[in-house]
Write a protein that binds this DNA or RNA. Structure first.
Lengths: 110, 110
DNA sequence: CCCGTATACCTTGACTACCTAGGTATTGCG
DNA sequence: CGCAATACCTAGGTAGTCAAGGTATACGGG
């Protein structure tokens, strides 16, 4: 358990979640697992961060929720990307790319 | 003035400041200007973020301060990197590299 | 000579977002 | 039957950034 205390995650969680939904609707728990797996367990998505993030984005109209069933036959809330969310993802991705490039330019050896 | 509201900056400011001090002591104002310039004005370092960050890092023993004079003959507090700060910078740089790679891998097109 | 701008520092209060640490309920397996 | 994994939810704390104020001084232009 690397308790790296991801203060770095700040501001990127939304984009990561939105990205996860591009390939189709997913429920919260699956979103978290997917991100963790996709980053080789480097990023840990805490549920106390995830669910508030989902409500936030739902309020903003970036995603829409619907009750359904998970692959394992359990009740689950399926989140779907809206057109607005798609635009938001594009914007945040662009912003991330520029930010990451800037920080890397300063931090990493030339 | 892109008010991108850098929630992304969270967690990276310390490393950026430490990095600025590698080439020698600098005062706060100069640190901010240097980072902004080095990132083509993409990152804006607000003074309300910078000074608290400097105190934080001084308390943690990563930097040391001393009153002196700026290049323009004004009173200025010069910050110097400590060995502990150098180690911290190395750690945070490593952490940033891994984090950025992970996020980019998810976010940016394959 | 005075006044505005840039330099240089500092602080308060609000806000946002994340984390910790709890909780509920259900499925399926040993 | 009990336990682990799944799936969701929330309250409270905390940390870091920002906005918006403030002080003081050097220097150049009008």
């Amino acid at each position: 358990m690397p308790q790296e205390s991801n203060s770095l995650l700040h501001g990127t969680l939304d984009a990561l979640v939105l990205k996860t939904l591009v390939t189709g609707p997913r429920h919260g728990y699956a979103i978290a697992r997917w991100i963790e797996e996709a980053t080789d367990e480097l990023l840990q998505i805490e549920e106390g961060s995830l669910y508030p993030a989902l409500y936030r984005m739902e309020r903003k109209g970036w995603i829409e929720a619907e009750w359904g069933m998970s692959e394992l036959n359990r009740r689950a809330k399926l989140y779907r990307l809206t057109p607005k969310g798609r635009k938001q993802l594009a914007a945040e991705t662009e912003q991330w790319a520029r930010f990451a490039a800037a920080v890397s330019k300063v931090l990493l050896p030339a």
